[in-house]
Amino acid sequence: MNILLLTIILLLAVASLMIKKTVPAMISFALMMLLLGLYYMSIDAKLLGLFQIFIYAGGIVVLLLFGITIIGIEFPKAKTRPLAVVNALLVFVILSTIFFRGVDSLSKVIDKPTEDIHLFAHSFSDMVILFALIGTSLLYGTIKMTDALRSKRRKDV
């Protein structure tokens, strides 16, 4: 069941990049996100699945639609780089090779009994600071871009 779901997700991902018309591409992207949410629910990460559906299939798709309404629905045909396929395949092969070389050591973790994990205190105390820094810089970027967009618009008027 999961494999079927993942196959459809992958096909929708390819379709959202290959379909030339904007709205069908957007629909396949939204469907992909919805199915990813269902997949997370099927592997016992129900809250993550709900987050995925609400944030991606809801929020980000609406945000992208908003972007399309600003820019217009027609996109000119772009020249694609043939080496990009080789690049993507190479990364896929490298990731798979690294994973299959180390998968035996990963399976040892399964045998260990689950310990009481203090999530933020033990695992993420350093990472939270890093994530907060990245998040703050992205927020700063958003504010700066909005400001720049507004000043450009004012100049045009």
């Binding site: 972007g67 694609t80 990009a84 993507a88 896929f92």
Partner: peptide, 16 residues
């Protein structure tokens, strides 16, 4: 999925 995403970023398509 990572490979498909990487292809999309590097292939020089439109912003969407």
């Amino acid at each position: 999925l990572f490979g498909v995403g990487l292809y999309g970023v590097t292939s020089g398509r439109d912003f969407l």
